[in-house]
Design a protein around this nucleic acid. Structure first.
Lengths: 191, 191
DNA sequence: CCGCTTTATGCAACTAGTTGCATAAGCGTG
DNA sequence: CACGCTTATGCAACTAGTTGCATAAAGCGG
């Protein structure tokens, strides 16, 4: 149940329409919580029904018209409650690690290319984050809110650095492996 | 669509019953792909229907009886295909980072304790992994399959190390923050 | 041999997230 | 002004994962 709270946070930072939120989820918030526009519209409807947000009255509310939302006091309270509440970390799900594990059984054929590709993707993401850091957190900007937001961006930067390095390590291990093929094919029992 | 392949991998490593698989998912495989017993039973049924695995005939198949499965050649082929196929990395979802971001808007009250708790959890997980590394990968064990599996375990170890250190950093930032409270409460518009 | 716990399997309902498509207004251009 | 493109909102159906509970056999203790 994190999406509504991600939306509340985004709306508190700046009241927005559904599409604006979608765009912002492709940027800052989306670095650690992605969402499609359908999810967002649905959730906006629910949040409005619960009385946590409301549509800004200004613009005429018609289909194909922008409809911006702002957070109501009840929404802010709910977000504060959720933020303070203890939550267990969820176990990671990483498909690439699963594939490596599978490769130990069925062979590494084809995997190395994708490892390399992922390495590039992580490196590119890292570059993007570093650019944002330059832009959004110049030396002077270090109020409490800035520090917290910078901390979060730092997590993104450090994680991408981590994966880039880990994939380098994995690739160097691959180079030491006895050629991409099937390590063995044990007796396959037939019916 | 990774769960069926996680199960195929586990079954290739060792034919097992549903419950045995569940237990193994709480250990090695589950480090990066968790699953409940219900998910596993359901998926076993599907995999059998698709002809990728079959129940070992030996034991009598009754309710409350163990029913072990083994992978059929078609299952192995499917796993090899899946392993080699290129896949895009999925964006991370991290609730704690979301909460930190929210805290920048609604205040950090209550968060520090949970940061500390998470740090402990990650440290404990790290200790568990290191123990497994000691047990399963002694200096001699370095065949191709061992190297790959070790690589995956290493990712777990390095990730837990990463989060432990990052949380330490976050906590040290918190210590430097102007006391856990609400950094500001901007003009709340009422209806 | 009766009840209790453990082991093992499974169904049904629910929540969260994804995919594909529909609708409608605004805007530019021939 | 008719056509197509972009912006914006939204429904419906699907997939994946979670939660709660049901069932059945085996083992065990009195």
């Amino acid at each position: 149940m994190s999406l509504p709270h991600a939306i509340l946070t985004a709306l508190l930072e700046k009241p927005s329409s559904g599409l604006e939120l979608t765009r912002r989820f492709d940027k800052s918030i989306g670095y650690f919580w992605s969402a499609t526009h359908q999810q967002i519209y649905r959730e906006l409807g629910k949040l409005e029904a619960q009385g946590l947000i409301r549509a800004l009255p200004s613009e005429q509310p018609a289909r194909g018209q922008k409809k911006a939302y702002e957070v109501l006091p009840a929404g802010r309270d709910e977000l504060a409650r959720w933020t303070a509440a203890s939550q267990d970390p969820k176990p990671h799900r990483d498909v690439m690690l699963l594939r490596l594990r599978a490769a130990a059984v069925v062979g590494t054929a084809g995997l190395e290319a994708d490892l390399r590709r992922h390495r590039e993707l992580h490196e590119r993401q890292l570059a993007k984050y570093l650019e944002i850091e330059q832009r959004d957190f110049p030396p002077g900007k270090d109020g409490p809110e800035d520090r917290l937001r910078h901390l979060v961006l730092r997590a993104g930067i450090d994680l991408e650095t981590f994966w880039t390095q880990w994939l380098d390590h994995a690739l160097s291990e691959f180079a030491r492996l006895p050629d991409a093929g099937e390590p063995r094919r044990p007796g396959v029992r037939e019916a």
